[in-house]
């Protein structure tokens, strides 16, 4: 397959049709948590609730471990995984604090100071990747 032009943006996973295909059952699980009755069932017994969704073993593990970045790498999309986070009482900003590895406080501080600069963050080569 030809290299996708957006693959050289650092620290970014573009949720395209390939990801959407891979993450389908994972994302459908996440969105099911939009409803209170499903959140209640999931919170009572996570493993049993996950049996309803034919996701891969890796995806299932990542859900149970709340490995937020791995969930995205395995086809999850942030608007879906944020439903799982919301169930844990984690809002978008605190989730970002975790995904960036910065921690909630220093992430919030960075945002108050104008956010992450575009300088040095355009291309993977600037991050010392590929």
């Amino acid at each position: 397959m030809t290299e996708k032009e957006y693959n050289n943006i650092p620290g970014t996973i573009v949720f395209d049709a390939d990801r959407s295909r891979e993450g389908y059952h994972l994302n459908q699980f996440c969105i099911s948590l939009r409803l209170q009755k499903n959140r209640d069932t999931f919170n009572k017994n996570e493993e049993a609730y996950l049996d309803n969704f034919p996701m891969s073993k890796e995806q299932r593990e990542a859900v149970l471990k709340r490995n937020w970045n791995l969930l995205l790498e395995l086809g999850g999309n942030i608007y879906y995984t944020s439903k799982l986070a919301a169930n844990d009482g984690i809002n978008f900003q605190n989730l970002a604090g975790r995904m960036t590895g910065m921690g909630v406080d220093s992430y919030r501080e960075m945002m108050i100071n104008g956010g992450r600069s575009i300088e040095g963050n355009r291309d993977k080569s600037e991050w010392g990747e590929n």
Binding site: I9, P10, G11, T12, I13, N69, L72, N77, I78, S82, F92, L95, A96, M99, T100, G101, Y107, M110, M111, G114, G115, R116, S117, I118, N121
Partner: peptide, 16 residues
């Protein structure tokens, strides 16, 4: 400008 996901989350580009 905003990025909610993964390691580059928090990106803001005010000039743009």
């Amino acid at each position: 400008s905003h990025q909610l996901q993964y390691k580059r989350a928090g990106l803001i580009n005010s000039d743009w």
